[in-house]
Protein backbone atom coordinates (compact mmCIF):
# COMPACT_ATOMS: atom_id res chain seq x y z
CA UNK A 1 0.00 0.00 0.00
CA UNK A 2 1.29 3.45 -0.92
CA UNK A 3 1.57 5.65 2.19
CA UNK A 4 -0.74 8.64 2.02
CA UNK A 5 1.94 11.41 2.02
CA UNK A 6 3.52 9.78 -1.04
CA UNK A 7 0.14 9.44 -2.74
CA UNK A 8 -0.77 13.03 -1.86
CA UNK A 9 2.54 14.27 -3.22
CA UNK A 10 2.05 12.26 -6.41
CA UNK A 11 -1.47 13.65 -6.90
CA UNK A 12 -0.60 17.30 -6.26
CA UNK A 13 2.51 16.96 -8.41
CA UNK A 14 0.64 15.31 -11.26
CA UNK A 15 -2.06 18.02 -11.26
CA UNK A 16 0.60 20.73 -11.50
CA UNK A 17 2.82 18.88 -13.96
CA UNK A 18 0.04 17.89 -16.34
CA UNK A 19 -1.15 21.51 -16.53
CA UNK A 20 2.39 22.68 -17.23
CA UNK A 21 2.91 19.99 -19.88
CA UNK A 22 -0.38 20.89 -21.55
CA UNK A 23 0.57 24.58 -21.65
CA UNK A 24 4.02 23.86 -23.04
CA UNK A 25 2.57 21.68 -25.81
CA UNK A 26 -0.10 24.27 -26.64
CA UNK A 27 2.50 27.02 -27.01
CA UNK A 28 4.67 24.73 -29.12
CA UNK A 29 1.82 23.88 -31.47
CA UNK A 30 0.89 27.52 -32.01
CA UNK A 31 4.33 28.79 -33.07
CA UNK A 32 6.42 25.61 -33.51
CA UNK A 33 8.92 27.19 -31.12
CA UNK A 34 9.64 25.38 -27.85
CA UNK A 35 9.47 28.00 -25.12
CA UNK A 36 12.60 27.50 -23.03
CA UNK A 37 11.44 30.16 -20.57
CA UNK A 38 8.18 28.32 -19.88
CA UNK A 39 9.14 26.65 -16.60
CA UNK A 40 10.84 29.80 -15.32
CA UNK A 41 7.74 31.87 -16.17
CA UNK A 42 5.63 29.34 -14.25
CA UNK A 43 7.81 29.44 -11.15
CA UNK A 44 8.24 33.21 -11.07
CA UNK A 45 4.78 33.37 -9.52
CA UNK A 46 5.95 31.28 -6.55
CA UNK A 47 7.60 34.44 -5.25
CA UNK A 48 4.22 36.17 -5.40
CA UNK A 49 2.84 33.39 -3.21
CA UNK A 50 5.74 33.91 -0.79
CA UNK A 51 5.13 37.67 -0.73
CA UNK A 52 1.44 37.20 0.10
CA UNK A 53 2.38 34.78 2.87
CA UNK A 54 4.80 37.33 4.29
CA UNK A 55 1.88 39.77 4.43
CA UNK A 56 -0.01 37.16 6.51
CA UNK A 57 -2.43 36.45 3.67
CA UNK A 58 -3.46 33.01 2.51
CA UNK A 59 -1.11 31.76 -0.25
CA UNK A 60 -4.21 31.01 -2.34
CA UNK A 61 -4.86 34.77 -2.64
CA UNK A 62 -1.77 34.85 -4.89
CA UNK A 63 -3.36 32.55 -7.49
CA UNK A 64 -5.11 35.20 -9.65
CA UNK A 65 -2.04 37.44 -9.43
CA UNK A 66 0.12 34.48 -10.44
CA UNK A 67 -2.16 33.99 -13.43
CA UNK A 68 -1.80 37.65 -14.42
CA UNK A 69 1.97 37.65 -13.93
CA UNK A 70 2.47 34.47 -15.97
CA UNK A 71 0.09 35.72 -18.65
CA UNK A 72 1.75 39.14 -18.91
CA UNK A 73 5.28 37.72 -19.23
CA UNK A 74 4.12 35.14 -21.74
CA UNK A 75 2.33 37.84 -23.75
CA UNK A 76 5.49 39.98 -23.90
CA UNK A 77 7.53 36.94 -24.90
CA UNK A 78 5.10 36.16 -27.69
CA UNK A 79 5.35 39.73 -29.00
CA UNK A 80 9.15 39.52 -29.06
CA UNK A 81 9.19 36.09 -30.72
CA UNK A 82 6.54 37.15 -33.27
CA UNK A 83 8.54 40.30 -34.06
CA UNK A 84 11.65 38.22 -34.78
CA UNK A 85 9.67 35.61 -36.72
CA UNK A 86 8.24 38.32 -38.97
CA UNK A 87 11.81 39.43 -39.73
CA UNK A 88 12.62 35.91 -40.88
CA UNK A 89 14.66 34.80 -37.84
CA UNK A 90 15.46 31.08 -37.84
CA UNK A 91 14.09 28.59 -35.32
CA UNK A 92 17.46 28.75 -33.51
CA UNK A 93 17.12 32.52 -33.18
CA UNK A 94 13.55 32.20 -31.92
CA UNK A 95 14.56 29.69 -29.27
CA UNK A 96 17.38 32.03 -28.28
CA UNK A 97 14.73 34.74 -27.88
CA UNK A 98 12.94 32.57 -25.32
CA UNK A 99 16.28 32.11 -23.52
CA UNK A 100 16.48 35.92 -23.23
CA UNK A 101 13.29 35.87 -21.16
CA UNK A 102 14.42 32.80 -19.21
CA UNK A 103 17.58 34.60 -18.12
CA UNK A 104 15.85 37.86 -17.20
CA UNK A 105 13.19 36.09 -15.11
CA UNK A 106 15.74 33.78 -13.47
CA UNK A 107 17.95 36.74 -12.51
CA UNK A 108 14.95 38.77 -11.32
CA UNK A 109 13.80 35.89 -9.10
CA UNK A 110 17.23 35.71 -7.51
CA UNK A 111 17.42 39.47 -7.04
CA UNK A 112 13.99 39.41 -5.37
CA UNK A 113 15.03 36.45 -3.20
CA UNK A 114 18.14 38.39 -2.11
CA UNK A 115 16.00 41.46 -1.43
CA UNK A 116 13.57 39.45 0.75
CA UNK A 117 16.53 38.01 2.61
CA UNK A 118 17.87 41.55 3.14
CA UNK A 119 14.56 43.05 4.30
CA UNK A 120 12.85 40.15 6.13
CA UNK A 121 16.02 38.33 7.20
CA UNK A 122 14.73 35.06 5.77
CA UNK A 123 16.37 32.63 3.41
CA UNK A 124 14.16 33.12 0.34
CA UNK A 125 16.55 31.12 -1.83
CA UNK A 126 14.77 27.98 -0.61
CA UNK A 127 11.37 27.85 1.06
CA UNK A 128 8.14 25.92 1.47
CA UNK A 129 4.75 27.35 2.44
CA UNK A 130 3.02 24.12 3.49
CA UNK A 131 2.50 25.54 7.01
CA UNK A 132 0.18 28.21 5.55
CA UNK A 133 -2.13 25.57 4.05
CA UNK A 134 -5.40 24.51 5.73
CA UNK A 135 -7.28 21.22 5.80
CA UNK A 136 -10.48 20.04 4.11
CA UNK A 137 -11.82 16.70 5.45
CA UNK A 138 -8.42 16.11 7.09
CA UNK A 139 -6.67 16.44 3.72
CA UNK A 140 -4.50 19.40 2.78
CA UNK A 141 -6.50 21.97 0.83
CA UNK A 142 -3.83 22.15 -1.87
CA UNK A 143 -4.87 18.67 -3.03
CA UNK A 144 -8.43 19.79 -3.79
CA UNK A 145 -7.51 23.24 -5.08
CA UNK A 146 -4.79 21.96 -7.43
CA UNK A 147 -7.12 19.18 -8.61
CA UNK A 148 -10.03 21.54 -9.19
CA UNK A 149 -7.78 24.07 -10.92
CA UNK A 150 -6.36 21.38 -13.17
CA UNK A 151 -9.72 19.83 -14.09
CA UNK A 152 -11.37 23.25 -14.41
CA UNK A 153 -8.71 24.63 -16.73
CA UNK A 154 -8.68 21.52 -18.93
CA UNK A 155 -12.50 21.72 -19.19
CA UNK A 156 -12.24 25.44 -19.93
CA UNK A 157 -9.67 24.92 -22.70
CA UNK A 158 -11.64 22.03 -24.19
CA UNK A 159 -14.90 23.99 -24.26
CA UNK A 160 -13.14 27.05 -25.59
CA UNK A 161 -11.48 25.09 -28.40
CA UNK A 162 -14.66 23.26 -29.39
CA UNK A 163 -17.56 25.59 -28.61
CA UNK A 164 -16.37 29.16 -29.17
CA UNK A 165 -15.54 31.08 -32.32
CA UNK A 166 -12.23 32.06 -30.77
CA UNK A 167 -11.44 28.39 -30.13
CA UNK A 168 -12.26 27.39 -33.69
CA UNK A 169 -10.08 30.23 -34.99
CA UNK A 170 -7.29 29.12 -32.66
CA UNK A 171 -7.51 25.54 -33.90
CA UNK A 172 -7.33 26.84 -37.47
CA UNK A 173 -4.21 28.85 -36.62
CA UNK A 174 -2.66 25.78 -34.95
CA UNK A 175 -3.40 23.61 -37.98
CA UNK A 176 -2.16 26.00 -40.63
CA UNK A 177 -0.99 29.49 -39.74
CA UNK A 178 -0.79 30.85 -43.31
CA UNK A 179 -4.10 29.39 -44.43
CA UNK A 180 -5.84 30.79 -41.35
CA UNK A 181 -4.54 34.30 -42.06
CA UNK A 182 -5.62 34.00 -45.72
CA UNK A 183 -9.13 33.23 -44.45
CA UNK A 184 -9.16 36.55 -42.62
CA UNK A 185 -8.42 35.29 -39.11
CA UNK A 186 -6.46 37.82 -37.09
CA UNK A 187 -3.67 35.34 -36.28
CA UNK A 188 -1.60 37.82 -34.27
CA UNK A 189 -4.53 38.56 -31.93
CA UNK A 190 -5.46 34.91 -31.59
CA UNK A 191 -1.91 33.87 -30.74
CA UNK A 192 -1.37 36.80 -28.35
CA UNK A 193 -4.47 35.80 -26.38
CA UNK A 194 -3.54 32.11 -26.53
CA UNK A 195 -0.05 32.78 -25.18
CA UNK A 196 -1.50 35.01 -22.45
CA UNK A 197 -3.87 32.26 -21.30
CA UNK A 198 -1.26 29.54 -21.47
CA UNK A 199 1.26 31.71 -19.61
CA UNK A 200 -1.44 32.49 -17.06
CA UNK A 201 -2.09 28.78 -16.58
CA UNK A 202 1.62 28.25 -16.01
CA UNK A 203 1.65 31.09 -13.49
CA UNK A 204 -1.35 29.58 -11.71
CA UNK A 205 0.34 26.18 -11.47
CA UNK A 206 3.52 27.81 -10.24
CA UNK A 207 1.70 29.78 -7.52
CA UNK A 208 0.37 26.47 -6.12
CA UNK A 209 3.75 24.72 -6.16
CA UNK A 210 5.33 26.10 -2.93
CA UNK A 211 2.21 25.29 -0.91
CA UNK A 212 3.22 21.62 -1.03
CA UNK A 213 6.79 21.48 -2.34
CA UNK A 214 10.08 23.15 -1.42
CA UNK A 215 10.91 25.99 -3.79
CA UNK A 216 14.14 27.59 -4.96
CA UNK A 217 15.06 29.61 -8.08
CA UNK A 218 16.47 26.47 -9.74
CA UNK A 219 13.16 24.57 -9.59
CA UNK A 220 12.24 25.86 -13.05
CA UNK A 221 15.39 24.36 -14.59
CA UNK A 222 14.82 21.02 -12.81
CA UNK A 223 11.10 20.89 -13.56
CA UNK A 224 11.79 21.57 -17.21
CA UNK A 225 13.12 17.98 -17.45
CA UNK A 226 9.80 16.63 -16.16
CA UNK A 227 7.72 18.92 -18.40
CA UNK A 228 9.74 17.89 -21.45
CA UNK A 229 9.47 14.20 -20.51
CA UNK A 230 5.68 14.53 -20.09
CA UNK A 231 5.42 16.11 -23.56
CA UNK A 232 7.57 13.36 -25.11
CA UNK A 233 5.44 10.66 -23.47
CA UNK A 234 2.34 12.50 -24.64
CA UNK A 235 3.54 12.58 -28.23
CA UNK A 236 5.11 16.05 -28.60
CA UNK A 237 2.15 17.65 -30.39
CA UNK A 238 -0.85 16.26 -28.52
CA UNK A 239 -2.51 18.43 -25.86
CA UNK A 240 -4.38 15.58 -24.17
CA UNK A 241 -1.40 13.27 -24.60
CA UNK A 242 0.74 15.73 -22.64
CA UNK A 243 -1.90 15.77 -19.86
CA UNK A 244 -1.65 11.99 -19.58
CA UNK A 245 2.13 12.23 -19.89
CA UNK A 246 2.12 14.61 -16.90
CA UNK A 247 0.35 12.03 -14.75
CA UNK A 248 2.63 9.20 -15.89
CA UNK A 249 5.80 11.17 -15.22
CA UNK A 250 4.56 12.49 -11.86
CA UNK A 251 3.60 9.02 -10.63
CA UNK A 252 6.85 7.54 -11.96
CA UNK A 253 8.93 10.20 -10.22
CA UNK A 254 7.12 9.90 -6.89
CA UNK A 255 5.37 6.53 -6.49
CA UNK A 256 7.59 4.26 -8.62
CA UNK A 257 10.74 5.82 -7.17
CA UNK A 258 9.30 5.41 -3.67
CA UNK A 259 8.73 1.66 -4.19
CA UNK A 260 12.17 1.26 -5.72
CA UNK A 261 13.69 3.15 -2.79
CA UNK A 262 12.34 0.46 -0.43
CA UNK A 263 14.87 -1.92 -2.02
CA UNK A 264 17.44 0.63 -3.21
CA UNK A 265 17.29 3.53 -0.72
CA UNK A 266 19.78 5.64 -2.69
CA UNK A 267 17.43 5.88 -5.66
CA UNK A 268 15.12 8.46 -3.99
CA UNK A 269 17.73 11.20 -4.43
CA UNK A 270 17.69 10.64 -8.19
CA UNK A 271 13.91 10.86 -8.71
CA UNK A 272 14.29 13.98 -10.88
CA UNK A 273 16.30 11.92 -13.34
CA UNK A 274 13.63 9.19 -13.63
CA UNK A 275 11.64 11.29 -16.06
CA UNK A 276 14.63 11.76 -18.36
CA UNK A 277 15.25 8.00 -18.45
CA UNK A 278 11.59 7.40 -19.33
CA UNK A 279 11.69 10.12 -22.00
CA UNK A 280 14.85 8.64 -23.61
CA UNK A 281 13.25 5.19 -23.58
CA UNK A 282 10.03 6.57 -25.09
CA UNK A 283 11.96 8.35 -27.83
CA UNK A 284 13.61 5.10 -28.89
CA UNK A 285 10.70 2.70 -28.44
CA UNK A 286 7.62 4.88 -28.87
CA UNK A 287 8.58 8.13 -30.65
CA UNK A 288 4.98 9.16 -31.34
CA UNK A 289 4.07 8.78 -27.65
CA UNK A 290 0.67 8.06 -26.18
CA UNK A 291 -1.08 10.04 -28.92
CA UNK A 292 0.50 7.80 -31.55
CA UNK A 293 -0.38 4.68 -29.58
CA UNK A 294 -4.03 5.73 -29.28
CA UNK A 295 -4.11 6.55 -32.99
CA UNK A 296 -2.68 3.11 -33.79
CA UNK A 297 -5.27 1.39 -31.58
CA UNK A 298 -8.07 3.40 -33.16
CA UNK A 299 -7.01 2.31 -36.63
CA UNK A 300 -6.87 -1.27 -35.41
Amino acid sequence: MVPSPILLTALVYSFILSLLAMGFTLQYITLSVPNLAYATIAFASTYLTLTFSLMNLSPYVAMPFGFLLGGAISFMLYKFVAFLRNRGTSIVGLMMATIVFDLIIYASMNIYADYLAYVFKLYAGSFSLSEFDFEIFSFPAVLFISGLTSVGLVAFFTLMLVKTKFGVAMRAVMENFNLASVHGINTERILSIAWFFVGGTAGLSGSLYPIWFAMDPWVGARMFISIFAACVIGGLRSIYGSLLGGFIIAFSEVVVTYFLSLYFPWIWAYRAVTSMVIAAFALVEMPSGIAGLIEKLRRG
Binding site: S32, V33, P34, L36, I91, M95, F224, I225, F228, A229, V232, L236, M276, A279, A280, L283
Partner: peptide, 9 residues
Protein backbone atom coordinates in the same frame (compact mmCIF):
# COMPACT_ATOMS: atom_id res chain seq x y z
CA UNK B 1 14.18 22.00 -31.62
CA UNK B 2 13.38 18.92 -29.53
CA UNK B 3 16.93 17.66 -29.95
CA UNK B 4 18.05 20.89 -28.29
CA UNK B 5 15.62 20.30 -25.43
CA UNK B 6 16.66 16.65 -25.10
CA UNK B 7 20.32 17.63 -24.76
CA UNK B 8 19.46 20.41 -22.32
CA UNK B 9 17.52 17.97 -20.13
Amino acid sequence: DYLALFMLC
